[in-house]
Amino acid sequence: MPFIKKNNPTMDSYEHDCSRDLNELAVQLVDENPVIRRSAALNLAEHQGASEILIDRLKQDRDISVRDAILTTLISLGDTFAVIGLVECLRSEDAALRNEVVDAMKQLPEKVAPIMTSLLVDVNSDVRIFAVNILESLRHLQVETWLDRVIEDDPHINVCATAVDLLGEVGTSTSRAALIHLRSRFPDEPYICFAVNLALKRIGEDKGT
């Protein structure tokens, strides 16, 4: 039979040589070979304090596999620098990067919760939309209150639209008044009427727990 079997899965010689030293990894993180950059990004997970150089690289790197590795490491480091840096990236011109960052921030619920209030009133409506997107994964008692406040106050229709979608899933009768008020704020917008009616229906005959 032409099946072959080695005794051990192969150990890549390059992997053996891979540095563990923060300074060397920082150099590898800007190497021209994306394989080396990616490996450095993943290995930096062992270094508290690597978030700043990772964020710096994240903003520039055009290679998806490197950015993905950087984000994985930032999620596992999950420190303040990581979160602040990710928020900066939400303002990037690069749509792909913004979406990757939203995905990553959804995996840092505890770290993102304390800054949520300020994200939800950011001057940039896109950042507010992303903040609502991130709320989707947040396991936090405040989620419904935050969403209610968005649909009560936010002047931007698309921020409210994003919030209503989520309220259809997590809302209780507490949100009812805010939803009805939202509909009256945008009476000529069929989408808002549709979304509010759907959310109200989903909330249903709730006891208001």
Partner: peptide, 11 residues
């Protein structure tokens, strides 16, 4: 990615 939006267009 928003379920409500998909349902709106679908309708």
């Amino acid at each position: 990615d928003a379920a409500t939006v998909r349902l709106y267009y679908r309708t």
